[in-house]
Design a protein around this nucleic acid. Sequence first.
DNA 1: CTCGATTGTCTAGCGGTGCTAGGATCGAAT
DNA 2: ATTCGATCCTAGCACCGCTAGACAATCGAG
Lengths: 192, 192
Amino acid sequence: MSVQERKQRERAERERLIVATARELAEEQGWDAVTTRRLAERIEYSQPVLYSHFRGKREIIGAVALQGATEMAVAVRAATAAADGPRARVYALARAYLDFAARNPAVYDALFQLDGGLAYAQEDTPEPLKDAFAALLESLGEVAGDGVDPGLFTEVFWASLHGVATLTRSGRLPPEYTEQRLELLVDRLAVV
Amino acid sequence: MSVQERKQRERAERERLIVATARELAEEQGWDAVTTRRLAERIEYSQPVLYSHFRGKREIIGAVALQGATEMAVAVRAATAAADGPRARVYALARAYLDFAARNPAVYDALFQLDGGLAYAQEDTPEPLKDAFAALLESLGEVAGDGVDPGLFTEVFWASLHGVATLTRSGRLPPEYTEQRLELLVDRLAVV
DNA sequence: CTCGATTGTCTAGCGGTGCTAGGATCGAAT
DNA sequence: ATTCGATCCTAGCACCGCTAGACAATCGAG
C-alpha cells in the first residue's frame, strides 16, 4: 500500500505544481501566454502529462480560479474583521476586493472573466466559490437596508465592484479616480 | 476619375461586408468562431483580402465595436427621450443598456470585453465611443446629486450596469432577478 | 492596337495553438 | 528473472493568425 500512497502523493504534488505554474505564467505574461507547450516545458514534463491531470486548458483555469476564490475570501474577511462598524466594513471590503483584482489580474480573470468550466450560483457550485460569495454577504448583508434581500444586495454590490475592476483594468476607465468611485459606490449603495 | 471612384466605392462596400459578416458570425457562434478563414469564406474572398482592409483580426473587432457604440447611443437616447422625468429616464436608460447587451452579446463583447485596439477615455478616443458615453451622461448627469461630478457618477453607474450585464451573461449571476437588481441599482445610485 | 507597369487577388506556407494516438520505458509483483 | 501494467514521450492531427510571392487583370503611354 505504501508504494501506491507515495505515488498518489507525488501525483497530487505534480498537480499542485501544474496549477501554480499556470498561475505564475498567467500573472507574468497573461493567460494567452499560458499554452500547453510552455506550461509543459516549465514543469519539465511533456504535454500529455497535463491531460492526465486535467481534461484540458479550461480545467486548469478552473483550478486556478478555485484557488483564487479561497484567497479572495480570506482577504475580504481579513479586511472586514479589522474594521469597526458596518459602514467601515463595507469600505474595507470594497478596497480589499479591488485591491485583490488589481494585484492578481490573472487569477481574477480565471475567476470572473474566463471560462474555467465551473458552475456559478447553483447547487453544484464548488465550495470555494460559494464561500467567497458568503464572505461578501457577511459584511454586505448588514447594509442591505430594510426590505431588501441581502443576497440580492450582495449580488448588486459585487457586480458594481466587478464592473469598476474590469473596466479599469482594460483601460476603459481612467485609473486615477478609483478611490472616488469606490466612495461614491459605498455611500450610495450601503444603507447606514 | 469615375473609374477610380467606382473602385473606391466597391472597396468601401466590401469593407462593410467584412464588418457585417464578422458581426453576424460572432452573434451566431461567438467570437471564437470568427476565424479569418471562415470569415474569408463567407465573404467569398481569400484570407489576404481581409488584411488589405484591416491590420488584423483585432481591427475587425474594433470596427464592429464602433458600429455597436453608435447603435447603443441611439438605443439609449431613444429610450430616455420617451421617458418623463429624470428618474424615469434613468430607469429607461438602465433597461435599454442591459437590453442592448443581452440582445447583442457579440457586439457588447467587442465594445467592452475584447481588445479591438481602440482608445477609451482619452483625447484620441474614436467619436462613436465618446458619443455613447455622452448619451449616458445626458440622462445620468441629472441625477448625480450635489457635489458629485456628473462624469464620475456616469462612470460608476455605467460600471455597475456593465458588471450586471457581464456577470449575468457568463452565468455568474442567475438571470431571474435582473429587474430587481436594476431597480435596486437605480433607487440607490440616482439622487431624485 | 500593343506593350510595359501597376493593381488586385490567390495559392501556399510559416510558426503557433489545443489535444491525442500509439509506442517505448520503467518498476512492481510473481 | 520475467512478465505485465502503469507511466510517459514522440509524433502528429486539424486548426489558428498572418504573409510572401506568383499570377492575372487592368490601365496608360506610345
